[in-house]
Design a protein around this nucleic acid. Structure first.
Lengths: 399, 399
DNA sequence: TATAGTATTGAATCCGAGC
DNA sequence: CGCTCGGATTCAATACTAT
């Protein structure tokens, strides 16, 4: 949902304690009018309307107060700052939400191409994360261990000896004792996410657009599916798109009719949204395809984009004809995948087609597989099956 | 040179316009007394002496004023902030040095031992960089191009065509023209420098000790050889050591006699840790190639870096014990790989081990496989075998 | 010397005991 | 119930040892 209007008025009409998370990337006090054109020649202009910094801070303060009111007690707020004003904005947050509810200063870093200037190249932006109360919703995300860490070592439990030194714990037989399962490392407050590249930016034609991955991370750590996300300065609507992509409800507000229209177009038609996303995101948002491309890589494939039936072709022909490869998508049943690949493979005159099976729920024998189609289970399925078999064997040998 | 005393008094006796750069890592307003012991059992205690934040800010403000006085007109100041107070300290800097002399917000990022925490793991500290005037000394440092940059392209000269678009410049023969040698990318304001590790030789047992590398960078960009560097809260003296290591004059001030003694001792025998991580980079610790890490990724593994027998552990335990994964190396025969994994898995008390077979030449049936070892063929082998079988079937059906 | 493998360290966090 | 204090736990990155 996208609402046109000054967020102050809109917020006043909203219920208190009604949203789970708020992200805002407010306008900045720069004392100049900016005007930008997109590729279609449309012009967007947005200028400062404040006479002084005090004016601007008052403007922000009343809105932050209102935001606190509509936020649930378990909710969080993320304020994306411009480097010139971040200290003043944080003081507002301290005042309104309380210093004790400061959670993190998130640093979004990126490498950006720029001509040399005297001084250091700006390569980060700051997002302040406050919660409304001490009892706030937070989903811990675990990340990979550093390559400098010896995982096999930290699986061993440790104790302090009588001199206070920590040593490995041993049982009565002198063997090391294993510690509990390791979960990984909690996510840091420094996020390296590629800046929306200039080409993608051109396509949407709206300034200061943020990468979806950045917003998705924020939504993920602070809300659950079904929760409500509010962006009172929603611009081109990235926050709302990110929220709805992972099944949260999104409410966007923007004073500019242009912004509302762009956001609504992005949201209106799910199909359109998806294709728009693909265009926008694919560089900055490729994690989803990582595993797929890794599989294709192992099979020595050229990757194919935008074909529902085929994900890649083997680099080598087999019997003088191409070999198509498809990876079963999480949303596809095995028979759907087989049919998609069969049709696409016929069209491309493949001698053989290869389907990588990624779901263990369908039984192969119930499905009609073309004689020139090879089905390969992915490693996870193979492992599951092997472990199942292994425990059966153990049972058998006990009998 | 290290001087004992409150920096306010010491500064008042210093000449105006006499130092080229100032770095300070001031005490923070935390309202508790800290007491720490070093490895030799010496104890240092230092407490807050302020009743309120206003008190603390006043304390800082008068000192920052004095610092500006002793700084040359071409000089710079670097204020290392604690995350709880950075916004207030920056306002002081804005007041004293002027908003226009704000140069950068430097982010020092690092990885560190973690702790289970609700929220994001703190992994950065902030340093504000202000100059005294607009005409300040700055040495541009160039860093390597990021691996994704197409160096060929940036070496080609560009011009604007008649519609104002930039295009590559060509000579009369239609060949591209190479531009002058590029120096690299100017240094970013985000610095990834390893946190001073508990085992680093550089450590002198003083709390909040900073890595010399961090200070060295600051000294390098802001001063030339022979210049004077001042640290009014010098603590263990890292700034002074860094300055003198690269031929700048260092002046340290600290109110604590302990700190002065440590600094003086350190200056007699300055030691900068040879950090392997810093020298070779995090990449040098990664021992897996792309395909191997993709396989480990698909199996949901933690990667193990320096163990010949094990490449990773499944994130989930099986039967309350870890599951080790090994990928057969091109140089290993199947039986060698099996033996390495068997030995290593036993040592780590694995319930199950998994070997990914990547060579098709050894026959499995000639090899003695432990009953708790699962062997999975990689996709390439599976494909080869399937294709072989398929052509056999074709032959059979022709007969 | 190079590599594999083991031992050690400590700031920040949580948790539970004690008051 | 709120406070402090001690203990346990965490993992990055070093030093060290063995081969």
């Amino acid at each position: 949902m996208v609402i046109q209007g000054d967020c102050l008025g809109v917020l006043k009409q909203m219920d208190r304690n009604s949203v789970d998370m708020i992200y805002l990337d407010p306008p900045f006090f720069s004392q100049k009018i900016q005007s930008l054109k997109d590729t279609q020649g449309n012009e967007y202009s947005f200028g400062d309307t404040w006479n002084s910094r005090e004016d601007y801070l008052d403007y922000m303060r009343v809105r932050v107060y209102e935001l606190k009111r509509v936020l649930k007690d378990t909710g969080s707020i993320f304020l994306h700052c411009n480097e010139k004003a971040s200290h003043y904005l944080r003081i507002i947050l301290d005042d309104v939400f309380g210093e004790d509810n400061f959670r993190s200063e998130i640093i979004w870093t990126y490498k950006r191409w720029s001509n040399s200037k005297k001084g250091l190249l700006p390569g980060h932006q700051t997002i302040f994360f406050y919660s409304k109360t001490n009892d706030y919703k937070f989903n811990i995300v675990y990340t990979e261990y550093s390559p400098t860490t010896n995982i096999d070592q930290i699986l061993q439990e440790r104790v302090r000896d009588n001199r206070g030194k920590t040593i490995y714990k041993h049982d009565n037989n002198g063997e090391v004792i294993l510690s509990k399962e390791k979960k990984g490392v909690p996510m840091s407050d420094v996020w390296e996410i590629p800046f929306l590249n200039p080409k993608a930016k051109e396509r949407v034609g709206y300034p200061t657009q943020k990468p979806i991955e950045l917003l998705e991370r924020i939504v993920r750590i602070s809300t659950d599916a079904g929760d409500t996300v509010l962006d009172p300065f929603c611009g081109s609507g990235t926050t709302i798109v990110a929220a709805e992509l992972i099944n949260r409800k999104g409410i966007g507000i923007d004073i500019s009719q242009d912004a509302v229209e762009i956001s609504e177009n992005r949201l209106k038609n799910p199909c359109k949204t998806e294709s728009r996303l693909l265009k926008l995101g694919i560089e900055s948002y490729k994690t989803k395809n990582d595993i797929d491309s890794a599989i294709l890589n192992q099979l020595d494939c050229d990757v194919v984009q935008r074909n529902r039936g085929i994900d890649g072709f083997l680099k080598k022909y087999y019997k003088n004809a191409p070999v198509a490869v498809k990876i079963q998508k999480p949303t596809e049943s095995l028979s759907e995948a087989v049919n998609l690949l069969k049709t696409a493979g016929k069209k491309k005159k493949c001698s053989v087609t290869i389907l990588i099976r990624t779901q263990n729920d369908d039984l192969i024998r119930n499905i009609n597989i073309p004689s020139n189609m090879v089905i390969i289970d992915d490693y996870k399925i193979q492992l599951e099956n092997e472990l199942k078999e292994m425990s059966l064997n153990v049972c058998a040998s006990i009998m």
